[in-house]
Design a protein around this nucleic acid. Sequence first.
DNA 1: TACTCCTTGTTAATTATATAACAATAGTAT
DNA 2: ATACTATTGTTATATAATTAACAAGGAGTA
Lengths: 212, 212
Amino acid sequence: MNDKSKKVPDVVIKRLPRYYRYLGELLNQDIKRISSNALSEKMNVTASQIRQDFNYFGGFGQQGYGYNVEYLYGEIGDILGLNDGDTMVIIGAGNLGKALASHGTFERRGFKLVGIFDNSPDVIGTVINGREVMDVKGLEDFITRNRVDIGVITVPRAAVEETVEKLVKSGVKGLLNFSYAELKLGHDVAVENVHLSDPLMTLSYKIKQSKE
Amino acid sequence: MNDKSKKVPDVVIKRLPRYYRYLGELLNQDIKRISSNALSEKMNVTASQIRQDFNYFGGFGQQGYGYNVEYLYGEIGDILGLNDGDTMVIIGAGNLGKALASHGTFERRGFKLVGIFDNSPDVIGTVINGREVMDVKGLEDFITRNRVDIGVITVPRAAVEETVEKLVKSGVKGLLNFSYAELKLGHDVAVENVHLSDPLMTLSYKIKQSKE
DNA sequence: TACTCCTTGTTAATTATATAACAATAGTAT
DNA sequence: ATACTATTGTTATATAATTAACAAGGAGTA
């Protein structure tokens, strides 16, 4: 548990990936330094907020100079744990599972996909992005043996409960849940629920507003 | 523009899809009524917050009784504009585009997929979920003719700018952007950016916390 | 019908978040 | 070297969001 006097608010943590992504871009463009002000213009937050956010972790800049892009990028990555080499498996090799497995974005962020599982004989043995889909029967054993950190759940709704149980039992540390269900687990296992239709619904609201 | 004295905060809007999903479940289970208290237990919000949220829209319950599930479900759907029959096209028939096209979740929420586009000759003409992939060259014409409401962007990064320009020019009302870029447009076009790696990064943070 | 019990709508209090302000300090120019 | 400028870290202020409290008013019951 973090012993620093003040717990970092969730809203701040949620902003870190955005900072991280943008700093990655700056890095690619070979930009060496940036001020909170310049950052804020591109990111739809105030400069004050950026400084405040970084200050939760002690501050990474220098007065009169700003922030060193590479250093800041590294620090935020560390805070987020992106440099820990977390491993993950995908359970459910349907369309979404396949898409996530093929999507470069996870690996680009420092995560290592080490296995894809499914329960359908039609799918087991097929190759996705150079990786053979395994039988879900071997899931628990695989996780335990390889100490897999994260389980990505893209199974149909009916299979969620069983899948979660297996994952938790075999000692996974976090779940990224794309299934319809809203998961909530105990302290020992972290969970992020992703509902792809939610942003579409809020988009719909915004569209409706602009019409009125 | 909404003329009610107070603008509904974004955080409230963001919660509506969650309420909506859960109420849908209750509806399936044939549950007729529910109190803010019962709702709150399942949803990780306080009863007070739920009542407060609904109150932004005038309140949908009855004292001493609670909320009629079906009515409330309908009202929230209306607020979100889910009953407007918004149409959408997907641009980019790669893995993610395919997955979204096949995923039932969008249609289930009242949106109508009317077209899938790509620029690759290998993909154009193939069939996804019973729908033939069209040449992106015809995108603008298609949107204008069919008055498509929403463009879902799942193209590679290099193609984002051009795609957005086309979509906006042909009069789309909202964009659901899955590409790496962070879009920000003028008032006339609503945007939701979805970054699939963000929740993975916050999950990573949570995992790291629980270790410490 | 009348009485009691729930549960809302709504206002008030508290807590959290965001913005503003500014002193401290490193960088830059002369 | 010295003065000047830029920009942070940090504290103080303002705004927003959440929680608590409770009066008002239906619903259920006898």
